[in-house]
Design a protein around this nucleic acid. Sequence first.
DNA 1: TGGCTAAGTGTTAATTTTACACTAATTAAT
DNA 2: ATTAATTAGTGTAAAATTAACACTTAGCCA
Lengths: 228, 228
Amino acid sequence: MIDTQFFNFAFSVDCVIFGFDQDALKILLIRRGQKPFDGDWALPGNLVFPNEDLDFSATRVLEELTGMKKVFLEQVQTFGKVDRHPLGRVITTAYFALVKVSDFSLIPSSLASEAAWVPIRDLDHLAFDHFEILRTCYELLKKSIRVRPVGFELLPPEFTLTDLQLLYESILETSLDKRNFRKKILAMNLLVDVKAMKRGFAHRPAKLYRFDEDKYKAFRAEGFVFEI
Amino acid sequence: MIDTQFFNFAFSVDCVIFGFDQDALKILLIRRGQKPFDGDWALPGNLVFPNEDLDFSATRVLEELTGMKKVFLEQVQTFGKVDRHPLGRVITTAYFALVKVSDFSLIPSSLASEAAWVPIRDLDHLAFDHFEILRTCYELLKKSIRVRPVGFELLPPEFTLTDLQLLYESILETSLDKRNFRKKILAMNLLVDVKAMKRGFAHRPAKLYRFDEDKYKAFRAEGFVFEI
DNA sequence: TGGCTAAGTGTTAATTTTACACTAATTAAT
DNA sequence: ATTAATTAGTGTAAAATTAACACTTAGCCA
């Protein structure tokens, strides 16, 4: 798939696609089926077409891999060491995406090779400089989740406060006080009580909430700053 | 200087070089001497050589223009719209630099055209998409200055607390309480009293301080977070 | 020596953050 | 039907931080 005609200079995009599943933060990786780095996990990515905006190219990677169009996707950083790609000069721009693991299925046909959700804790290396890219994106996620309401992108539309707290705890790799966390979140007035319960467990059922995007936009216009 | 052989795909870097002079935040711009955008101000930038790391390329722009090697320089974002450059497909990575205006002089020979410090408030357009790049970098500067001790990069090595406060006020475009500002800064223990005064004005002289980089590094290693 | 100018300085009230432990609601097992 | 197990849900008080606010000091100049 890599066309040598690109190789004097080529642009690519690579996506760190975060998902939260079974209390663990995971990223969507593809297993390389050829050299170099044959057999290693790599970030999904592609070369940028000459007639394609950089941002669009990242959208395309994501859509081809997951079938999803409307996901949170943001540029992170560009990696441009001369020798970062063994086959030639390729500068790559990293994007990070936040998806709800629940509401999509991988499109297997789109890739020659295996794709899978891998817990971030299990990883210690990736193909190319992708591990460094991952670290950069993870750092950004940690910062972002504290000052922007991006965590909700990783949860199903309706969630409990415990779900939300677990998400924060696993991303920030820390534990939070339950009462203080709830107070803080609820005081922001960004969650709407959907008047339903998460039931079916051998314990007290939990209220479900939904994040109110519109309210957030309105508040933000007035200078409100989200912060956990 | 622009070589058509680059033009199918080319990389460039553009630098937003901030300086603080006479109570105003300025950026270093060059006047274009040819089409397109002939006569407009533009960000200093250049094409990336095939054998040159992206980051190094930004360093090179800065050094060629200012003669300075050791300045604060950090990658910001990459701009990759298909039509952003009228002459072909050029993806550019923006960097922002913080320099002490006092301790350097422009190298006029390095450029065919004029270079100058322009107050940021005076600008409403630039060549190419450079005004958008400027806005992005300025936003980042505003964020950065509040949570990282980068403001000192813009001041001479020795400065008064009033100097520092004026810097913050002009970057953040707000006014700050003098006593609270001083308390906060001094409480961080990052400034050392150089036991000298800024004299020669028709008023009480002011103490001079110096930022202690090493102390900051040590504190940060212990989890200290800079915040104004 | 008096006037001008910016430097320097503390206290109090308000707000925010932290620490902390029991009761409530449901399911599963007996 | 009762009990055990499990997580949901809740309030208060102390501590820390932030915000508001005005006068005295030191040097220059006329």
